[in-house]
Amino acid sequence: MNKKETSVSDMEEMLEKLKAMTDTKDSDFAEQITNMEKLIESKKKNIYSNLTPWETVQIARHHKRPVLDDYIKLLFTDFIELHGDRRFGDDRGLIGGFAKIDGQPIMLIGHNKGKNVDENVIRNFGMAKPEGYRKALRLMKLAEKFNVPIVTFIDTPGAYPGLEAEERGQAEAIARNLVEMAQIKVPIVCVVTGEGGSGGALGIGVGDSILMLSNSIYSVISPEGCASIIWRDGTMAQKAAEALKITASSLKELKVIDEIIDEPLGGAHNDYPSTVKSVKNVVLKHLKKYKGNSESKLLKKRFEKYSNIGVFNK
């Protein structure tokens, strides 16, 4: 929690106390409560409409931010997890399976961040290994066969940078997905819900619609990594976060994403139900867009979409 957020949370605590006092004692604080609520609302509005990129990074990584588990419970129904890449193992950092959104069947694939140390030890902080990307591809092919659209939820610091990941071909696994996802014959809707960490995010991030939650980030390199390479100083991360243009609004301007999903005031971590509702509505809207499209039209559009990304001189 940053300083600005702390002041809001202090006020919220006071508000709760006032309410409690109203409940237990005869005294009435109705007026004070209304004033306090108004004050908190305006303060939140002020904070959340003026976030610096670095503050956005903090929110995108917030330990209370909804993770895939939460969306599975609150947004989807009938989730059936499907395990394993059929080659090496089952990655817990990247999971997937059939699910329903508003009764509609889809294939859900997403990074599986945890919320505490125990969860994150098992889930590797949502950092996938080659077997994770290969499982994702297997499930995407399955979705193609079953003719159900694919929805991916992106939230990872990056692909796992470890010895065994290199041995088993981290680069090849991600690269293969980029090639295959360009040609999968069902609609693909990708949602960056928290951290879009470079190639690790892109490995399940090629699709027809790319969406981002308003306080999520998507970057070619972490601000810390960029700072240590360019400024040779990890503490320059704040500066790097600005320079890299990693916020949802920057990505919209750069024409990399299609739509920003607004988070409730105070950020997704402060209001799960509203967040889930917004995500659901926007995802459904985009799924609807591709309904009835022929395979060839879908692939042609997808190819054109990626052909047009980039800015250069001629």
Partner: peptide, 24 residues
């Protein structure tokens, strides 16, 4: 990737692979 071009650089990975995918 070329950090100086941020996310646009990352997206070139997808762009180039989309081209290569068609060759099959």
């Amino acid at each position: 990737a070329r950090m100086h071009e941020g996310i646009l650089s990352l997206m070139q990975m997808a762009k180039t692979c989309a081209g290569i995918a068609r060759l099959d």
